[in-house]
Design a protein around this nucleic acid. Structure first.
Lengths: 356, 356
DNA sequence: GCGAGGATTGTGAGCGGTCACAACGCGGGC
DNA sequence: GCCCGCGTTGTGACCGCTCACAATCCTCGC
C-alpha cells in the first residue's frame, strides 16, 4: 500500500472582538420602563399583560437583542431540558443510528442532546456522575460490555433510560429500557439458512455485552436455539471484535472448513470481512457459502454480493428510549410511545440454497 | 425482496420513587458546622483551609452525597464548559468521524459535547440562537449546503469554529475554521488515474456546499484542474446525492459509456454504488474501469474489489476544530493545536492500469 | 507582652432568571 | 357612593453557587 499526498491542511486566523455582555431581563425592563417581572411575563407569554406594555417590552427585547439566559432559567425554574447519551462508540452502525434516533426525538421535544463516550480508561462512576450533574436525564446505550456496566452503576435517583440487547426471557433490566428482539431475529435468520438446505449454521459473534460466561448475547442465543430445535450440530461461535477485520480473521478459519456452508454474523461489518475472506479463499458466495449479516448497515445493500441481513430499527429504538426517559422526566407528559419496528430479515444475494 | 420477522419489541416498566432534593452547599455547611463559603473553598481546592476543617467538610460531602450543581456553578462563575455541534448529518462517514474527533477532544478538555442536527424545515437562525443560548461555544460542520448556510448566520459575538471543505485558494472563511486540502487530494487522485494510462477521469460528485454556480466544491475543482493541466477532456460531473443509491444511478449511465475507464467519486458511498452499477453492467473493476473513492470509510478496505480511495483525517479535523474553539473560548489556553493529517491516496484494488 | 501580618473563616452581594404575594387602578353591582 | 374583584404591575425572596471583602484567629519577631 502506497501513500501519497501533496497536500496540506490549513486554518484561518480567529478574529478578536470587543465582547459586550448580553442584555439581561433587567436591562430590558429599564429600557421599556417596566419592572423585570413584567419582562419575564412577556417572554413567557403570560396572559395578563396589557397589550401596549407587551409591545413596548417586545420592542426593547429586539432592540437590545435580548435572549433569555438558558442557564439562569434552568437554575431558577428547575426545569432542565437536556439529556446526555452515554455510549462506548459512535461510529458503528447500530450506535450511530440509535444516536440519530435519539437526537431526532429529543430535538422534536425541544430537548438538548449531549454525547459522552465511555472508555475503559475513565472511571465509570465519575463519568456517570458528571453526566448526571448536567441535570437532565441520561440515556445509556448498553449494547456492549462498557455500556452495560455503565447501566448497572447509574444511581437510582438519576432519571435514566437505556437501550439494550434483548434481555434473557423472563428477566428484565432494572431500568426503563427498550430493546429489539434480536434473539428471535437470529433464530429466524438461522431457520432461514436451515430451510435453504444447509446442515448447520456457523456463527461469527460480536463481543458479548455481559461478562458472565452464561450469556453470550441474544443473537448467539437465538441461533443456538434454532439449531437445537432443528436437532443439528451447534458449531462453536468464533469472532473477537466488532469490525470487518475481526470478521476477516474469523472468515479465514471458516473458509478452510468445507463443512461450513452457512455463516451468520453478529453484524454487517463482520459479514463484510467474512465475505472478503471467503473470496480470498476462492469460495463463492452464495454458491459455496451463504452469509447473513445483522443490522442492515447502509452499504450492505450495495456490496457485491449484496448482503442478506437482519434489519434493525435502531433509530426507532433511540426514539423509544427518549420517550421512556421523557415520561420519567415529566410524568404528566404522556407521549404516544411509538414502538420501534420489529427486526426483519432482508433477503439479498449473499444467502442461497445449499449446493452439494 | 421478501421481509420476514416473527419478532417483537419490548420495554420494561419504569420505577417511581421518592426523590429527595439533592444536598446543597449549605446543607453540607450545616452538617460540617462551617459556613457555605468554606464548603465552596473545599470543593474548589482552595489552599487556605485548615486541614481538619477540610476533612470535616469532605466527610459531610460524602455522607450527604453532595455534588456541586453544574447549572448554578455555570451561572455564578460564568464559565461554561459546553460546546454544541451543528451538523446536517450524523451518519455519513465524514460527519460521524468528525463528530467523534470533536467528542474526543472536548472530553479530554473536560468539556461537554452537544449535538444538534440541522434540517431544512427548522429556522436556521432560531436553531443557531438556541444552540448559542446554551452558553458554550459552537462548532459547525460545513461540509454541505445546510452547514455552510448555518456558518454564514452565526452572529459574530458567539464563539464558533467550523470545519469546512477546502476554501478556494486565496479566500478564507470569515470564521476560525479548519479544513483538509481535498482539492489537492482530488488532483493527486486524478493524476494517479491519468498516470495509469486513462484518457480522462469522470467524476461522480457529492452535492456542493455552496449554492453558487461558480463553485462546485474542492474535489470537483481539483479533478478539473488536474485534467486541464494534463490537457485532456473534462467530462461533465454527474451525481446527485451522497449515498450509494446516488452512486448507483450515476454509475449506470457511466457504465454505458465505453470511453469511461476511470471514475473518481466524491465519497466512498458513491463509489460503492458505482462499483455495483458497473458490476451489473458487466464491466469489471479494475480490468475495464478504475474507480477511486473519497474519505476511506471503514468498510472500503473490505469490499471486493477493495476501494482505492483518499483517506481523510476527519477525526483530526474534529480535534483541530475543537482546539480552535478552545483558544477562542479562553485565550490564555494555548493548546498545542495539532494539525490533522494531510489527505492521502490509499492504493487498493479498484484502480489499475488502462487495458487495451 | 504586644502589634503586624498571614492564615482561616464568615458575611453580603450578585449571576439572571423564577415564584409568591402585595399593591395599584379601575369598572360594576348594591 | 362604597366595596368587591379583576386585570395589571411591582417587590421580595430564592434557585445554588461564586466573588469581594471584612472579621477573626494565630503565630512570629522584637
Amino acid at each position: 500500500m502506497f501513500v501519497t499526498g501533496h497536500t496540506r491542511s490549513g486554518s484561518s486566523a480567529d478574529l478578536p472582538q470587543g465582547q459586550q455582555k448580553a442584555a439581561s431581563i433587567r436591562d430590558v425592563a429599564q429600557a421599556a420602563g417596566v419592572s423585570y417581572q413584567t419582562v419575564s411575563r412577556v417572554i413567557n407569554g403570560h396572559p395578563n399583560v396589557r397589550e401596549e406594555t407587551r409591545k413596548r417590552v417586545q420592542e426593547a427585547i429586539t432592540v437590545l437583542g435580548f435572549r433569555r439566559n438558558a442557564t439562569a432559567f434552568a437554575l431558577a425554574s428547575g426545569v432542565n431540558r437536556s439529556i446526555t447519551v452515554l455510549t462506548s462508540n459512535t461510529l458503528l452502525h447500530g450506535y450511530a443510528a440509535t444516536l440519530q434516533g435519539l437526537e431526532e426525538a429529543s430535538r422534536a421535544a425541544g430537548h438538548t442532546l449531549g454525547v459522552r463516550v465511555l472508555t475503559f480508561e475513565d472511571d465509570l462512576d465519575r463519568t456517570i456522575a458528571s453526566a448526571a450533574d448536567t441535570g437532565g436525564g441520561l440515556v445509556v446505550i448498553g449494547f456492549d460490555r462498557l455500556g452495560a456496566a455503565a447501566l448497572d452503576r447509574v444511581p437510582a435517583h438519576v432519571p435514566c433510560a437505556a437501550v439494550v440487547e434483548a434481555p434473557p426471557p423472563g428477566s428484565s433490566p432494572g431500568l426503563p429500557a427498550v430493546w429489539a428482539d434480536d434473539r428471535e431475529a437470529a433464530r429466524a435468520a438461522t431457520a432461514h439458512l436451515l430451510a435453504l438446505g444447509h446442515d448447520t449454521v456457523h456463527y461469527v459473534a460480536i463481543p458479548a455485552s455481559t461478562g458472565s460466561r452464561r450469556s453470550v448475547g441474544p443473537r448467539a442465543e437465538g441461533r443456538r436455539q434454532a439449531l437445537e430445535s432443528a436437532g443439528v450440530a451447534v458449531p462453536e461461535p468464533s469472532g473477537k471484535g466488532w469490525d470487518a477485520q475481526a470478521g476477516y480473521e474469523a472468515g479465514k478459519k471458516l473458509a478452510r472448513n468445507p463443512e461450513a456452508t452457512a455463516i451468520l454474523c453478529g453484524n454487517d461489518d463482520l459479514a463484510l470481512g467474512v465475505l472478503r475472506a471467503l473470496h480470498h479463499a476462492g469460495r463463492r458466495v452464495p454458491e459455496d457459502v451463504s452469509v447473513i449479516g445483522f443490522d442492515d448497515a447502509p452499504h450492505s445493500a450495495y456490496v457485491t454480493p449484496s448482503l442478506t441481513t437482519v434489519r434493525m430499527d435502531f433509530q426507532g429504538l433511540g426514539r423509544a428510549a427518549f420517550g421512556l426517559l421523557r415520561t420519567r422526566l415529566d410524568p404528566d407528559q404522556q407521549a404516544p410511545a411509538v414502538l420501534p419496528a420489529a427486526p426483519a430479515l432482508i433477503l439479498r444475494e449473499s444467502a442461497g440454497p445449499r449446493r452439494t
